[in-house]
Design a protein around this nucleic acid. Structure first.
Length: 219
DNA sequence: ACCCAGGGTCATA
DNA sequence: TATGACCATGGG
């Protein structure tokens, strides 16, 4: 039986540990989470370098900078005008927020979702990889993989899927570590699988339109 | 010349 | 609630 946990084991065996999130601080994780919306990570790295060069990788500096100057540093990520505003919206919340280790995760999640520009996946990236909370991140790859394995239906909402995964993985001990590695492995699988098809399964290439997957009618 | 990327918001029906 | 337009650079 293919269960979410079995699939995790296969991914781990195939790709080994990923040690996410690739960042030097929790704040950098949060910035990256916003900048990588529908954007490849290589572009995000360029923007992070720009921010560092201008000593602008801090809440304080980002809020102080003009929209135009910030957008210019964010140019490589695309959507730079939108993302400049989103980043500022986030920083304005982060600066005044007073959340501690004790803050309830659902409460923190609702606060994140109330920020314009932070949707469910970005919020969960931040919760898992910056705040170390046990939330399972759902992204386009996760949907495609489990849809093509015929374990989920593609008309499910984000919350339905997150709840499904968290229920299926209820019994694991260190949820933060597992959810962390799981999402990272799915992304790694997406990057690697089209180049070297290896036996996780025959039909789960995660490109949006994979001829192989199409031919096998696993959509 | 196309397709895609570690999404989200807003207007419309 | 469910689609569709829009945001925009860079790599394959």
């Amino acid at each position: 039986m293919l269960t979410p946990y079995r699939i995790f084991q296969k991914l781990l065996k195939q790709y080994d540990y990923q040690y996410w999130w690739p960042a030097n601080s929790p704040f950098e994780v949060m910035v990256g989470a916003i900048l990588t919306q529908n954007t490849s990570w290589t572009n995000v790295e360029k923007a992070i370098i720009n921010l560092n060069k201008n000593k602008a990788l801090s809440c304080h500096k980002i809020i102080k900078m003009s929209d135009e100057n910030l957008a210019e540093l964010l140019r490589p990520v695309g959507y730079f005008n939108v993302k400049a505003r989103r980043l500022k919206n986030f920083c304005n919340w982060y600066q005044t927020s007073n959340n501690s280790e004790q803050t309830n995760t659902d409460c923190l999640r609702r606060e994140l979702l109330s920020i314009n520009g932070v949707g469910p996946e970005t919020a969960d990236d931040i919760l898992l990889y910056a705040f170390r909370r046990p939330v399972f991140v759902i992204d386009a790859y996760t949907r495609r993989l489990f849809s093509r394995l015929e374990l989920i239906e593609d008309n499910k909402s984000y919350e339905e899927l997150r709840s499904w995964f968290e229920t299926k993985l209820k019994r694991v001990k260190n949820k933060v570590a597992l959810f962390n590695e799981y999402h990272a492995l799915i992304v790694q699988h997406a990057k690697a699988h089209c180049r070297a098809r290896k036996p996780l399964c025959e039909t789960c290439c995660l490109k949006r339109s994979c001829a192989y997957a199409k031919a096998n009618r696993k959509f």
